[in-house]
Design a protein around this nucleic acid. Structure first.
Lengths: 349, 349
DNA sequence: CTGAAAGCGCTTACAG
DNA sequence: CTGAAAGCGCTTACAG
């Protein structure tokens, strides 16, 4: 094959002895009437010449890129998996997905990535609840590119077409109830405030659960990140009263780190400490004791987000109906429940 | 801002009262002489109109997309992080990175993704050692798009411009020496044959280390994936003789799973079992005991891969020299050493 | 059923 | 220092 000029429809037109318009029609299987013979000739020529459509040219003339943009906080853990599922889902519907990591929750990087994506003329944008201000966001996407949020709360309707959110609040409420049921007498939430709203939602559920539990059960909120885990474990030992201690961690990794530090200090899990994570990460069942956690339905979330986008793009026929069954719709927010996976780390004693 | 037609250089040209050629020159900061006043006018107009360059149009006329393609086996663990670093690195040099997950090692998906990427006219391609045949690969990339491999061994020179490989063989050799030094009398490698060549390279190092250790030390190779870990632990107990057992796992996650199953069976780590992982994954130091592992220099590997690509693209001035210091060059392969991180899981007893 | 032509939004010699 | 013009590789009415 030619080393430096790729095959174009002009080459095919010549080889097949037809016009480029016809080549385009055949190759795109358009619904205009065409002679069998013509179709055959064009397809043969395309095949033989090793033709590969130039996406840029097609997008430019069609005025639609069939490219979607996705910004996630990072590729590690939950968001990496989510990005992978989103890419695959978009692909299934004929869209390319350009994924960017915003390096945690860095507003500048968010802005740069959004800008790059818009320069690429993506047809739509998926973002987590951004760290940058809503005003900045509004200004940036004011050209009309549809924006769908995932795990973004309290965003004005005029910015985003909708939000597909994991119900961390509801999940954490269930988590606390579970811990109380298993006999915990003190409760700790190990949060990560730099995760912004996804942390606040967890906190909300935790607080509600603690309130439900009543005065007989103490509850505290700690920040997981700055200090060493060993220190955190010590704090919980001092603060807790008699009876088993319940730990609700920001995610499974925080849970694992806490559990390891606790075991290192000679504490017994689940007898003295009951530990609860979030994400059903592969680590949650790769350790001992295995960690009780909330399962996140990635594929469902991705499917719902993409459906929402397809509707914005006027491709309603591609968007499914049935996917919303499990989810709660509330205004322009779709809320996805998490499933409690009980494991040894919170067994009753 | 207009809801449905984005602003183009034609709009700017009108607003500034100059030609579109001039607008293009100013906005691209080309080295042609231009009047101060013109530059000011154009930049002002662009700013005010909220101009955003259309990347597709620019790429099409420039005949260069400034887009690179990356295919990884998946986003989980090592390759997810690698993808993130690659994206960032490419970005730093003015390239966009389109990342695809090949869903493990699925040759069909590899083919489809390669095709999509070439339709997008990416300037270059990064792939892991592909599962598809080299002939298929050769045919697909025969149009001259440069291909750089990472963790791909034994690929013919005519296909790939080069390969940037982690030295799993050397690392595993060191791992075995370490285990022997710490007193292990039996050695097991827990492999993952579906990881293809990255598994074989590890195996090679393990075998070499075992051979070095001599007849006094038994060594075995087991497959980590099919059977439950508890079963695997039992097998090692039966097969091993007296003295501490050394386990070299495919990666940190396999190591953690094995360790957890061993502890569950009442075995003591590191007294009876010494466990060695690979990747310096965050889990390796989030568990107890923390796991001895090989650290992978992601950024270095990404930087070297991108440098290689930049050279292929004739952008030698962007490519650095100094990054190869740490790496070994051998033919068209660059080999990157891994660093042993000793932790409690292999402490001498 | 097929093709000539305009147009998508840029870049790049080249002429002035 | 600036602009007219050709061209990148397609798609899309529209005329025939």
């Amino acid at each position: 094959m030619s080393k430096h000029r790729s095959v174009t429809i002009v080459d095919i037109a010549e080889a097949a002895g037809v016009s480029i318009a016809t080549v385009s029609n055949v190759l795109n299987r358009r619904k205009v009437p065409m002679a069998e013979e013509t179709i055959r000739k064009v397809e043969k020529a395309a095949e033989e010449l090793g033709y590969r459509r130039n996406v840029m040219a097609a997008s430019l003339s069609r005025k639609k890129s069939y490219e979607l943009g996705l910004i996630v906080p990072g590729f590690i853990g939950y968001y990496g998996l989510f990005a992978e599922v989103m890419e695959r889902t978009a692909h299934r519907f004929g869209y390319h997905m350009s994924v960017f990591s915003a390096g945690g929750y860095d507003p500048d990087m968010e802005k740069r990535h959004l800008d790059v994506l818009l320069q690429r003329r993506v047809d739509g944008l998926f973002c987590h609840g951004l760290a940058m201000s809503t005003d900045t966001t509004r200004h940036i996407v004011s050209d009309g590119t549809p924006l769908v949020l995932f795990n973004g709360w309290n965003w004005p309707q005029d910015i985003a077409a909708g939000a597909v959110n994991l119900d961390f609040a509801g999940g954490c409420l269930e988590a606390v109830r579970h811990l109380v049921r298993q006999g915990c007498r003190s409760l700790f939430y190990l949060g990560r405030s730099r995760a912004h709203e996804t942390n606040k939602q967890r906190l909300k559920g935790f607080r509600q659960g603690a309130a439900e539990a009543g005065d007989g059960i103490r509850s505290y909120v700690l920040e997981a990140d700055p200090q060493p885990m060993a220190e955190l474990v010590r704090m919980t030992r001092e603060m807790s009263g008699d009876g088993p201690v319940g730990i609700l961690a920001f995610d499974d990794l925080v849970a694992l780190r806490f559990m390891s530090a606790a075991i290192e200090q000679g504490l017994r899990v689940p007898e003295e400490y009951k530990i609860f994570g979030i994400n059903n990460d592969v680590v949650s069942h790769s350790c001992y004791p295995q960690i009780t956690t909330l399962d996140i339905p990635y594929s469902q979330q991705a499917r719902l987000a993409v459906d929402l986008m397809l509707r914005q793009l006027g491709e309603d026929e591609k968007a499914g109906e049935e996917h919303e069954r499990q989810a709660l719709r509330e205004g322009h927010e779709i809320r996805i429940p998490l499933t409690l996976i009980p494991r040894l780390s919170t067994a009753a004693t």
